[in-house]
Simulated scan of single mutants.
Amino acid sequence: MANTQAFLAIAALGDPTRRQIFERLAHGPSPVGELASTMAVSRPAVSQHLRILKEASLVTETAQGTRRIYRIDQRGISAIHAWLDERWAETLNAAGSTLDQDF
């Protein structure tokens, strides 16, 4: 399950517009309108990108009056981090095995 979450998050960040939205949210929470106001895509497009980021557990939303405020969700980041840690551990183990065979 953790790998599935990591793959969803990585795939979601594969789109340049979603990466740009994600990077903007890394600087602090924001409503859709503020995100869209400085982007080259429409507000509905930003909303669609946010939906995908939310499905990938990379952003969360909270209601604040009639607005939805989006912020980074650590669950998606943690899933990517765990997956990369596994790959790193495998790489180090393989390197260690290769070095052991050479000596």
Score class of each variant (00 low, 15 high):
residue 41 V to W: 04
residue 37 S to T: 09
residue 52 I to H: 02
residue 100 D to P: 07
residue 53 L to K: 09
residue 103 F to W: 02
residue 75 R to I: 08
residue 103 F to V: 13
residue 56 A to L: 06
residue 26 A to S: 08
residue 44 P to A: 08
residue 94 A to L: 13
residue 102 D to K: 02
residue 15 D to S: 15
residue 34 E to K: 15
residue 13 L to D: 04
residue 72 I to F: 10
residue 64 Q to L: 13
residue 72 I to G: 02
residue 45 A to S: 11
residue 5 Q to I: 11
residue 99 L to C: 00
residue 51 R to K: 13
residue 98 T to P: 00
residue 52 I to S: 01
residue 20 Q to P: 00
residue 54 K to Q: 08
residue 99 L to V: 13
residue 1 M to K: 06
residue 95 A to L: 14
residue 91 T to F: 11
residue 93 N to H: 12
residue 4 T to G: 03
residue 55 E to G: 04
residue 100 D to M: 15
residue 42 S to A: 14
residue 98 T to A: 11
residue 79 A to F: 01
residue 28 G to R: 03
residue 86 E to Q: 02
residue 56 A to S: 01
residue 66 T to A: 09
residue 60 T to V: 04
residue 13 L to F: 00
residue 69 I to D: 05
residue 64 Q to R: 11
residue 99 L to N: 06
residue 51 R to I: 09
residue 6 A to W: 05
residue 10 I to A: 00
residue 50 L to Y: 01
residue 45 A to I: 00
residue 11 A to M: 02
residue 15 D to Y: 08
residue 23 E to R: 07
residue 93 N to Y: 09
residue 88 W to K: 13
residue 93 N to M: 14
residue 22 F to M: 10
residue 70 Y to N: 08
residue 81 H to S: 15
residue 27 H to K: 15
residue 47 S to T: 11
residue 43 R to D: 05
residue 43 R to M: 15
residue 14 G to P: 03
residue 58 L to H: 06
residue 86 E to F: 00
residue 31 P to L: 11
residue 15 D to G: 03
residue 70 Y to L: 13
residue 42 S to P: 00
residue 81 H to L: 15
residue 91 T to H: 06
residue 36 A to F: 05
residue 76 G to L: 04
residue 32 V to C: 15
residue 40 A to I: 09
residue 14 G to C: 07
residue 64 Q to D: 09
residue 73 D to G: 09
residue 65 G to K: 01
residue 39 M to K: 05
residue 91 T to Q: 09
